[in-house]
Design a protein around this nucleic acid. Structure first.
Lengths: 256, 256
DNA sequence: CGATGGATTGAACTGGTTCAAGTGGAGTGG
DNA sequence: CCACTCCACTTGAACCAGTTCAATCCATCG
């Protein structure tokens, strides 16, 4: 899929930048044919008929459970998810694990570090991802302020959401944690259209959820049954949950 | 202190930008006379003889315990700390609190949200801070890529450190948490020069530390005495700690 | 000098963990 | 097609790290 690289600082790029900027002003998107509400780098790249970013990217497929990059790797690439789900995690030497985020189509990762990844990224499901050399994409930021702005914007939004998760990890009870988690998953924009009214699809295992919420598998499982008994959710198998009372769930999630 | 605004998109700014860029290339700093290793927005502003940023900033003083901005406020400003320390926190309706970060000279805040702050910032000590209207500073990013790059860079670094803190909050024991905390404070660049070899100055209260680590005051206090008994630290009053065995502390902090 | 508020210490308690057993559904192979 | 295996999930019961509640200490300040 990878095309020969383009000299990004040449005259060519200025024209392209101009054209993209126009499109951005007119349509609010960064490129022609950009269908997604959550514009991703991939959208910028793939659906960009001008092919500006194509030259520096590589499309990859990964099977579930494959590792995309690990804590010891050099951070050479920026990754963008096209389809599937990814988990980002950090480990302590004795195996304790904290999942810092679940990522979905449109999300990217691989930018929040200097020269070495400080986390491991693994495929939760089968994946299509898109890989950009960091150096080149960072270089592009000057020529394409809109691209820079978008990535910066996403980074700031992510930072904001990590604050909310610190509150969750440090101060919420097990029940509150699970309710928050279910509502977050429900609100996940890239999963919105795929599910019926009150249903949530959870592509991750109970143990992933536990490591995301700072709990054990057993506690997570118990909380699921608790919420079921209270009639707030209904379980159609471990990965398919119906939220029966979003109002109550929200109250609990918010901490009373 | 605030000087009349400058038209940032005029010809003037281009010259200034060029001059700053040259300086950056030559000296690795964003402006003349920039003394700090951790170049801050304030450094860019204050010590910049060209006065580019002065026009849009306001210098403020706050006394300890004063609120700088709270969770309900509109996010109109970007703040940069010149001296003193700040705590950033989030609260649950029933009063449970999570401190998401302690900030020191050179750090900034107020950027990681859309239009409303999602956290409260309070003065931990007496403060000198510098306030920039977000709109204007964001506008400057296009004219001063170096400024943009630096702020983006700091944001990414901060995001990375929140990942480490999620691991701490979700998976570390009380002792591990406190050791990590002490070492982090020791490594705080803006406090480095002020303290002797093994001493750390903790400007925050035990209850702040507790809310930062997701523990109770009592547990924090007990952990301090534990570490003292083990000979790993020595307490010269609640706010002055000597790290007597950084190696061991590091091993514990890393999780065994 | 007493009052105030952070910090420490003690002792009982508990939410969540740990350890252990049981369940059920998907995949496999005979 | 059934039996067997595997593994994720659930459930139960004992346990414990950290909390809660309560008392005390101690430095600061009017």
């Amino acid at each position: 899929m990878s095309i020969s690289p383009i000299n990004i600082s040449g005259q060519n790029s200025k024209k392209m930048a101009h054209s993209i900027r126009q499109n951005y002003k007119n349509n609010g998107t960064l490129c022609d044919g950009c269908v997604s509400k959550h514009i991703s780098l991939c959208n910028v790249m793939d659906q960009n008929n001008l092919g500006i970013l194509s030259g520096i990217s590589t499309n990859l497929r990964k099977k579930a459970k494959q590792i995309i990059c690990s804590e010891t790797d050099k951070a050479e690439y920026l990754y963008n998810i096209r389809s599937g789900a990814v988990r980002i995690s950090k480990m302590l030497p004795d195996g304790r694990r904290q999942i810092t985020s679940f990522l979905f189509p449109g999300d990217f990762f691989g930018l929040s570090c200097k020269d070495q990844h400080s986390y491991t990224a693994e495929a939760l499901t089968n994946l299509e991802i898109c890989r950009f050399p960091r150096k080149k994409i960072m270089g592009l930021f000057r020529d394409f302020p809109e691209l820079n702005e978008r990535v910066f914007d996403m980074t700031r939004t992510e930072l904001d959401s990590t604050h909310a998760r610190m509150l969750l990890l440090g101060r919420k009870t097990a029940t509150e944690k699970l309710c928050s988690f279910l509502l977050n998953m429900k609100a996940q924009p890239s999963l919105l259209n795929e599910m019926a009214n009150d249903e949530v699809d959870l592509p991750m295992s109970r143990s992933d959820i536990a490591d995301y919420l700072g709990l054990t598998v057993e506690t997570v499982s118990r909380q699921f049954t608790n919420l079921s008994k209270l009639g707030l959710i209904q379980q159609g198998g471990p990965h398919r949950i119906s939220l029966k009372n979003i109002e109550s769930l929200s109250v609990i999630a918010a901490g009373g």
